[in-house]
């Protein structure tokens, strides 16, 4: 069937040029009117705070001045943050916190998802039990863990002494060497079930006939996992890992409630440190500069997240 396009004259560059954005808005004005309320809300609750944070990052805010009387300091807040030894220490802690929480949550979630993928008696109950940490309030969980870990009267320390593993209760939270690892364990406990749910959904997409064919070909359990299951989980794994990383970078409740960043800054991560600078010390300008740096990191992670999500679409479009 011939089309008008094929029968007509060749299309020139000018004729192929897309209409500009104003023309498109005018042409689709009704559509834009429908989404206008949502756009206004987004501008107010997202765009303005971002703009204001960036603006504040160029000012100093002494405790005896109102925000409207802030003093212009240019890039000095960024310089203060980046040259601060505490910032370097907190950055290392943030990286350890994020990577350790993400990797171990993912691996634990993967193990749980693979175990629960098989049919066995009580699978539903076990799946529900493993979801409890994810659905429980983070604040409540933090208080419970705080008492489990308590350096003088904690349950874990008492059991450890009763079983003869240690002579005195283990100092989990009041020790600079152990506090971050202790909080990471709580974080992994809290979020591994999120990875489990995501990966269980991914496992549903693995065709059963592939497994059967591999078994016929003599593949063992590991071979079937590595060559059949895992390739099908790559996409969902990438998304899960990126979501976990973003969540962990922004994780606030567990370190804030359990230690407030202490002792002596040993459990501060970027977000709790920003909070302390802003609300504890009222260094709004420095805290804003810090937040802008965090924002850039998060946007970078977000870029890769979107790329991972749309990779399949691009391949299909290009293919």
């Amino acid at each position: 069937m011939a089309t008008g396009q094929a029968a007509g004259p060749p299309i020139t560059r000018a004729a192929r040029k897309k209409p500009n954005i104003v023309s498109r808005i005018i042409k689709h004005r009704a559509d834009y009117l429908y989404v206008l309320p949502a756009l206004i809300v987004m501008l107010v609750v997202i765009a303005f705070p971002i703009y204001y944070t960036i603006e504040l990052s160029f000012f100093r805010t002494p405790p005896n001045l109102q925000m409207k009387d802030k003093i212009w300091t240019g890039l000095s807040n960024y310089s203060t943050v980046l040259n601060s030894s505490v910032f370097h220490e907190v950055t290392i802690q943030t990286i350890i916190w994020t990577l350790a929480s993400t990797v171990f949550s993912f691996l634990l979630g993967l193990g749980a998802a693979l175990s629960l993928h098989r049919e066995f008696v009580g699978r539903g109950v076990l799946r529900a039990l493993l979801l409890i940490p994810y659905v429980i309030s983070a604040v409540a969980a933090s208080y419970v863990w705080k008492w489990l870990y308590h350096s003088d009267f904690g349950v874990i320390g008492a059991i450890s002494v009763a079983l003869g593993f240690t002579d005195e209760p283990i100092n989990f939270l009041d020790n600079r060497q152990t506090v971050l690892a202790s909080l990471i364990v709580v974080n992994i406990w809290k979020e591994f079930s999120f990875a489990m749910v995501m990966l269980m959904a991914g496992l549903q997409t693995v065709p059963d006939q592939l497994h059967r064919a591999a078994m016929v070909d003599g593949a063992n359990t590991w071979d079937r996992f590595w060559h059949v299951t895992f390739p099908h989980l790559k996409g969902v794994s990438m998304v899960t890992i990126l979501l976990l990383m973003v969540a962990n970078f922004n994780s606030f409740i567990i370190p804030f409630v359990m230690t407030g960043g202490g002792p002596a800054d040993a459990s501060h991560i970027w977000i709790t440190h920003i909070y302390q600078l802003a609300f504890g010390r009222q260094q709004w300008g420095v805290a804003s500069a810090y937040a802008v740096i965090l924002f850039v990191v998060m946007m970078t992670l977000g870029y890769f997240y979107v790329k991972a999500l749309t990779r399949g679409d691009e391949n299909r479009a290009g293919g």
């Binding site: 003088d152 009267f153 009041d174 359990m258």
Partner: peptide, 21 residues
């Protein structure tokens, strides 16, 4: 003194005091 002093407020001293600890 309590090992937990670094994460304690005064509220956390009440329980060990009433427990004779």
């Amino acid at each position: 003194v309590p090992t937990s002093a670094l994460t304690n407020t005064q509220n956390e001293n009440q329980s060990p005091f009433i427990a004779g600890q």
